[in-house]
């Protein structure tokens, strides 16, 4: 079935643009290409770019599908454009977008992990270190993940779908720098509620995907999150307290929620 989508993308892009499918996520199919959307091809074009395509979902009513695809593509593009300008926050650079057809072009981030562990997202990285989960590199990387989320929230943005798959690690020397991706469900929000839910969604994703070491992982992320807020002085400390208080409340709601609905 996926071949059908690949053909569709090829015909949309025209044959001059090379595409290699990388992954089929829940929402989008991701391709890599060596072609920039509008800059001329340079001779030594070893540069890679990402094409992210949200195919129509045939399972849902066309009206819902069109609304969602357009909204999410546009939303993701707008957010990326704004977030890219925030100092210290790392997201892929937006190159082009076509919300009606569900296409986004992005800068390529990440690489393949050594030892066949797959692409360098946080999920695969943590699985790679499963045998020695509490080493300094893991701790430092998760701390930096926390800083990224802290910065995002401090600037009044929410991600909406934080999981270890949606954090890409980019290697600079010996260091892995986390970049946040997939902002389709993201939002601009100054509500503590949205931030609390954001943190809760991430905590649960870590808990279910990396169960054995989840407690420590979540601690490190929250330490980084706190550090990002503390950096901002007294106002930051106050905000941090508000967000974490609501986070606890959201968590309690989830746990205590009656199974009776």
């Amino acid at each position: 079935m996926t071949q059908e989508f690949i053909d569709k993308v090829s015909s949309y892009l025209s044959q001059d643009i090379d595409i290699t499918p990388i992954s089929q996520g829940a929402e989008a199919i991701v391709f890599s290409t060596s072609t920039h959307p509008y800059l001329p091809k340079t001779r030594e074009s070893h540069q890679k770019f990402i094409i992210k395509y949200r195919p129509p979902k045939r399972y849902r009513h066309p009206q819902i599908d069109q609304t969602l695809t357009k909204h999410r593509t546009l939303n993701e593009s707008r957010l990326l454009a704004k977030l890219y300008l925030i100092p210290g926050l790392y997201v892929p650079q937006l190159l082009a977008c076509d919300p009606y057809n569900g296409f986004i072009w992005l800068e390529f981030l990440g690489e393949d992990l050594p030892g066949g562990y797959g692409f360098s997202n946080l999920k695969n990285f943590l699985w790679m270190h499963d045998k020695d989960p509490y080493n300094d590199l893991v701790a430092a990387t998760l701390h930096k993940v926390g800083i990224q989320i802290g910065l995002l929230h401090w600037n009044d943005y929410c991600h909406g779908d934080l999981t270890s798959s949606n954090i890409v690690l980019v290697k600079y020397g010996a260091e892995w720098v986390p970049h946040l991706i997939d902002f389709g469900l993201g939002s601009v929000s100054n509500l503590v509620e949205d931030k609390g839910v954001d943190l809760y969604v991430l905590e649960r994703a870590i808990l279910s995907t990396h169960s054995k070491h989840a407690e420590k992982y979540n601690d490190w992320i929250m330490e980084g999150f706190e550090a990002a807020y503390h950096e901002k002085g007294a106002k930051g400390i106050k905000k941090f307290k508000e967000v974490t208080k609501r986070f606890q409340e959201v968590r309690l709601r989830g746990r205590k929620r009656s199974m009776l609905g």
Binding site: R204, S208, T209, R257
Partner: peptide, 23 residues
């Protein structure tokens, strides 16, 4: 009473997603 997305790992059925309010 329930709305959950569940997958098995490491001896437990883990809840990956669920309703935040009513079922």
């Amino acid at each position: 009473g329930n709305t959950q997305v569940i997958a098995y790992s490491e001896k437990r059925y883990r809840i990956f997603g669920e309703t935040l309010d009513i079922a």
